[in-house]
Simulated scan of single mutants.
Amino acid sequence: MTLLQPLRRLSDIVNQVAIVTCIACVLAMLGISFTAFVYKLATGNTLSWTYSLARLFLPWIGFLSMTISLRYGEHVAMTLLVRSLPRVLTVVAAVLCLLVIGLFGALLLWYGWDYFQGTRQVYMVSDQIRVHGKFTAIVVPVSGAIILLHLVQGFDLLEHFIDEREMIDELIESTDGENRP
């Protein structure tokens, strides 16, 4: 267990970095789109490169947000079905779920790395702006590695073992504690 604690902290840190990166990508997209809007208002002409450049951030947002949602247990889960099973089968289903998630992360890492290395494409955003395809391709193996890292969180990634009553009581207690002088 001593090895799991530092890995869990690393998983949390990587998750925070992924959140900040997603926010930065969204802000960059909004900034580029706002620039195009203001330019269109001011000149009546359009900037041809804004849409193409903003679109390059979408894979980063999509793949990284997938890892963030996994970390918080917000992925697709069949919680109602699993909770109706006996406890032993619930644990078996949870282990199988984690194995499938691990397999998906490993496949993203394995095939994503090949995809990244084989990328030769250069996106011609404009005559002056060229972005290599590796910029968007690297997010595939990176997200696979993050998914595999998040697996150290174990059953905390799954909703199957969350007791809603306990969670509601904790939220009420924390809210009551904030309101007291």
Score class of each variant (00 low, 15 high):
39 Y>V: 05
55 R>C: 03
29 M>V: 11
93 A>M: 10
86 P>T: 00
75 H>W: 06
65 S>E: 07
4 L>N: 11
92 V>W: 03
57 F>R: 00
29 M>S: 07
166 E>T: 14
102 G>V: 04
131 V>T: 10
66 M>W: 08
65 S>Q: 10
125 V>R: 04
121 Q>A: 10
81 L>V: 11
144 G>W: 01
73 G>F: 04
172 I>M: 10
57 F>K: 00
169 D>F: 06
101 I>H: 04
130 R>V: 13
55 R>P: 00
28 A>M: 15
108 L>Y: 10
173 E>R: 15
154 G>I: 04
62 G>L: 14
154 G>C: 02
118 G>D: 11
45 N>G: 10
106 A>K: 06
39 Y>N: 08
17 V>A: 15
119 T>L: 03
180 R>T: 15
62 G>F: 13
72 Y>R: 04
134 K>S: 09
114 D>F: 11
30 L>T: 14
161 F>L: 06
178 E>L: 15
145 A>V: 04
142 V>F: 10
143 S>P: 09
169 D>G: 00
48 S>N: 12
92 V>L: 10
162 I>P: 00
25 C>F: 14
43 T>N: 09
156 D>G: 01
46 T>C: 04
11 S>M: 01
97 C>R: 01
77 A>S: 11
136 T>M: 03
181 P>M: 07
22 C>R: 01
18 A>V: 00
72 Y>V: 02
92 V>K: 02
150 H>Q: 12
83 R>P: 00
162 I>D: 09
27 L>T: 14
124 M>V: 15
15 N>V: 01
96 L>E: 03
176 D>T: 08
19 I>Q: 09
62 G>K: 01
27 L>C: 12
19 I>L: 13
99 L>N: 05
158 L>W: 03
37 F>D: 05
163 D>G: 02
12 D>E: 09
120 R>V: 10
90 T>R: 15
147 I>E: 00
141 P>A: 06
143 S>Q: 03
98 L>M: 11
8 R>H: 05
173 E>I: 07
25 C>R: 00
103 L>P: 09
135 F>L: 07
52 S>Y: 11
54 A>Q: 08
122 V>Y: 12
